[in-house]
Amino acid sequence: MAESASNIPSKKLIQIDVSSDTVCPWCFVGKKNLDKAIDASKDQYNFEIRWHPFFLDASAPKEGVNKKEFYQLKFGSRVEGMFTRMSEIFGSIGLDYDTSGLTGNTLDSHRLIHYAGKHAPDKQHSLVEELCLGYFTQGKYIGDREFLVETARNLGIEGAEEFISEPNNGVTEVEEEMKKYSRNITGVPHYIINGKVKLSGAQPPETFQSAFETASA
């Protein structure tokens, strides 16, 4: 006999607030690990994930600059070792780490992520995925509004082009989110799970799963 709906225990809700930057490779690695943990735990919990801005370099230029040259100036002789290490890490999750293309200021990407969170919250997590795939594996420039708009359009996020074309849209909201979620942290990715369990760094899936259990107790 089928079990009646009243006898089926309801799944607990896990709310995850993530502070990250769209040019932070460890943030993307952390997202992929988080996704694995969520997939392994979906029979136990329902998940609500909210993405919040962080700026690794708020002074990065709005216009795109050569990615390799920018990081060479920033990190000096360490940069090649860093690129090699990230290539290994990305390879371990089935991705090719692309160091070609441009880098720069991430404000527009955070404005778009904020917009998605308000107007298409069910698509915000996928938007972060696609923006990071473009930047880290396809040589796309994270500050290119055509790339941002195309990504949003492909996901069916309506109104994104009109929103992003006005440079002041969302700026105040991004600043407010920074103050609320990222003011007291010094690095990303940073996770707050159900408002009480905090994790930093690209944690392995098992660590996230353990955090889900603790946060839902």
Rank of each mutant, 00 (worst) to 15 (best):
S87H: 00
N7E: 11
F208N: 02
D21M: 09
W51S: 02
A202Q: 02
K32W: 00
L13K: 15
V23H: 03
G117D: 07
D39Y: 10
E166F: 11
G81E: 14
S92V: 04
L127V: 06
N33F: 10
Y45W: 07
T84C: 02
K140E: 12
G170N: 07
I185Q: 06
L56K: 13
M178D: 02
A58V: 14
F70I: 02
A58R: 15
Q209F: 00
K74G: 04
D122L: 04
A40K: 12
K196W: 00
D43T: 12
F147R: 10
H119I: 01
H52V: 02
I16R: 07
V79C: 08
C27T: 12
T137R: 05
R153W: 02
V149Y: 11
I93R: 09
I93F: 14
P53H: 04
G91Y: 05
A202F: 01
W26Y: 15
S19V: 12
L127M: 06
G195I: 04
E176W: 06
I113T: 07
E175I: 11
T137D: 04
M178L: 15
G134P: 01
N169Q: 15
L112I: 13
E129S: 04
G156V: 07
E158P: 02
L95V: 03
S165Y: 00
S20H: 14
L133A: 04
I142H: 07
V174C: 01
V188H: 04
M86C: 00
H119Q: 14
I49F: 06
N168K: 15
S77L: 08
E69T: 11
E162V: 05
D21G: 08
Q124A: 14
D57C: 10
F212S: 07
Y181N: 12
E176R: 14
D35Q: 14
Y191E: 03
K12W: 09
H125D: 12
S100Y: 11
G91F: 04
E63W: 00
L95S: 06
D57F: 07
K196D: 00
Y45S: 04
S77G: 01
E88I: 11
R78F: 10
V79S: 05
L13A: 15
P121D: 10
L112K: 08
E3N: 11
L107A: 00
Y45L: 05
A211T: 03
G156E: 10
G30Y: 03
E130P: 01
T99N: 11
K196N: 01
